[in-house]
Design a protein around this nucleic acid. Structure first.
Lengths: 153, 153
DNA sequence: GGCACAAACTGGAATGATTCAAGAAAACGA
DNA sequence: TCGTTTTCTTGAATCATTCCAGTTTGTGCC
């Protein structure tokens, strides 16, 4: 299971316990935020500073080993699925994020009706809805905090 | 020019100087953030508290008179174009936001390849690119602060 | 294996956007 | 004009994240 270390090395990053643990954490978890990652890493390594976690997440993201996503209303989340152009599905009730395969596969997969002269390189698609668990449960008893409510409709 | 007051009234909101000024400000401006709105409103009304601006923006958004958008890496922005399902184009360099008409028109305009059991009500599309001004200018001299850089690719 | 230097990590303070709380002021229906 | 309810004010608090300065740790080289 040392391919994590190898991945770090081949990305030009130094191999440290914190980075290995963080990358493993994100690969195992599901769109975790920095705080959850920090907690998980501390569980296996003992102490790691918050700043260390942010530093490592930035380094890993810059190196292309992680992708950072920021659904409106929730802290940044990290995922290890990089290189393909997939999208996300976010639960308005509990904030959970699921991956959605992009039918086109490469960015930008959707064409705007008018570019306004912009040089466009990416079309980010976020689907908003309510996850199966939250649909089944009485309102308000979801596993997390509400992410964003739909105002109009 | 009192249709702003009428709009407030028919949305069930009390008409106050702050709300009128804020709604006019957002209608005139282009995807302004709370701080810019506050500055503009203070220019015409004198003093308005920051909290008052946030309160009013929430009320107007809840009433469906404004829409709140949160492009990754920038504070929340408000727009008065509501009711249609248009999308946005964000400049990675200066953060400027432009509207993009949705070819379908009603949410959700894009269908996911797999819903994972979610009840989906909206597909939010954000196009990322570089605006004409920033393309023309040497890097770093944009009018605002960088919004989000593209890591890979 | 031991060194040196750059890259990482630590602790602590700071920032920016936004929210909470409690009291004062203003809007609007009776 | 009054009373009730909503809105606004001031001031402090929160959350995610970053800045800073000093210390520690990986890694390439001898």
């Amino acid at each position: 299971m040392d391919n994590v270390a190898d991945d770090l090395r081949s990305a030009g990053l130094r191999v440290t316990a914190a980075r290995v643990a963080i990358l493993e954490q994100v690969r195992t978890g599901n769109h975790l935020d920095a705080e959850r990652i920090a907690r998980g890493v501390r569980g296996s390594l003992g102490h790691v500073s918050t700043q260390g976690v942010y530093d490592a997440l930035h380094a890993l993201t810059r190196a292309g080993l992680l992708r950072r996503i920021e659904p409106a209303g929730s802290p940044a989340r990290f995922e290890s699925r990089v290189g393909d152009n997939h999208h996300h599905l976010v639960c308005r009730s509990c904030g959970e994020v699921a991956d959605i395969d992009c039918v086109v596969g490469e960015a930008p997969c959707v064409e705007p009706s008018n570019t306004h002269g912009y040089a466009i390189d990416e079309a980010e698609v976020v689907f908003w809805g309510v996850c199966p668990q939250c649909q089944a449960q009485p309102a308000g008893s979801g596993s997390g905090q509400p992410a964003r409510t739909k105002s109009e409709d």
